[in-house]
Simulated scan of single mutants.
Amino acid sequence: MDSKLADLRKSYERAELDETASQADPLQQFELWLQQALDAQLPEPNAMTVATVGPDGRPSTRVVLIKGCDARGIVWYTNYHSRKGRELAVNPFAALQFHWVELERVVRIEGRVEKTSDAESDAYFASRPLDSRLGAWASPQSEVIHGRAVLVANAAKAGVRFGLNPPRPPHWGGYRLVPDRWEFWQGRKSRLHDRLQYRLQDGQWVRERLAP
Rank of each mutant, 00 (worst) to 15 (best):
L27Q: 04
Q28Y: 00
Q28D: 10
F30D: 00
L32W: 05
W33S: 06
W33L: 01
L34K: 00
Q35N: 11
A37D: 05
A37C: 07
L38E: 09
D39S: 08
D39H: 01
D39M: 01
Q41R: 11
L42S: 07
P45Q: 06
A47M: 04
M48W: 02
D56L: 05
G57S: 03
R58V: 11
R58T: 11
R62C: 02
R62V: 09
G68I: 03
D70Y: 07
A71D: 11
R72N: 14
R72V: 14
G73S: 15
G73A: 15
V75C: 12
V75A: 13
Y77Q: 08
N79E: 14
Y80F: 15
Y80Q: 12
Y80N: 09
S82G: 14
R83L: 11
K84M: 10
G85F: 03
G85V: 05
R86L: 11
E87H: 11
E87A: 02
L88K: 02
A89I: 00
V90R: 12
V90I: 04
N91M: 09
N91H: 14
P92C: 07
F93Y: 13
A94K: 14
W100S: 14
E102L: 06
E104W: 12
R105E: 06
V106C: 06
V106E: 14
V107I: 07
R108N: 03
R108A: 06
